[in-house]
């Protein structure tokens, strides 16, 4: 599958083609292994890079000036160098333990057994929405897709109609949330 075909499919939200993107993992892995990383580091960094790449394609921020492999590699390289930089700065080379500030004792979080987690609460609210609101909100809030593209993808007459629909869905999702619970979860 060519880069153009992958981009075209991703722009339509057909993400199964991301399987092909993993062909570039070997290159990234090889570079990270040579630069003080291990297999897990390589996979984590690559996965984060794919998330950034996919979101950028969907939001229209990805400019196909270079090959996907070059794009992913540059993200991975920079990300890994930043991580290494931090490790070198804030870890003791002798024992590899991060030097935490003396006063950074993390207080035990107070657990309210009646409360769901923030992730569970939003997940349950989303589940109650149904389609097309779920997909529409994921496209607009998560992927930050342009309204004109949302309109094309969801068959709305115009970008304005798509935005109105997004606002209705947001309202519907907002109605699923209790302000008291939101406050307690904060």
């Amino acid at each position: 599958m060519t880069d153009q075909e992958i981009i075209a499919q991703l722009q339509q939200g057909k993400e199964a083609c991301l399987t092909h993107v993993y062909a570039h993992l070997a290159m990234v892995r090889s570079w990270i292994l040579k630069n003080n990383g291990n297999q897990e580091d390589a996979l984590d960094v690559f996965q984060d890079a794919v998330v950034v790449f996919y979101k950028n394609v969907r939001s229209g921020r990805y400019e196909a000036k270079s090959k996907i492999s070059t794009y992913l590699f540059s993200i991975c390289k920079k990300q890994w160098l930043n991580q290494l930089n931090r490790r070198l700065k804030y870890e003791r080379p002798s024992d590899g333990v991060v030097q935490l500030a003396q006063h950074t004792e993390v207080p035990e979080p107070e657990i309210d057994n009646d409360l769901p987690s923030r992730a569970t609460y939003i997940q349950e609210a989303m589940a109650k929405l149904g389609e097309p609101c779920q997909s529409l909100l994921i496209a607009t809030v998560f992927f930050k897709q342009k309204m004109i593209e949302v309109a094309a993808q969801f068959n709305y007459a115009s970008a304005h109609s798509a935005r109105q629909q997004k606002l209705r869905c947001l309202k519907k999702l907002g109605n699923q949330l209790s302000y008291d619970v939101v406050l307690r979860l904060r």
Binding site: I122, V141, F142, L170, G174, L177, Y179
Partner: peptide
């Protein structure tokens, strides 16, 4: 407050 929660968590 509610919509900020959505934009943070979603």
């Amino acid at each position: 407050e509610k919509y900020q929660f959505i934009y943070d968590e979603l």
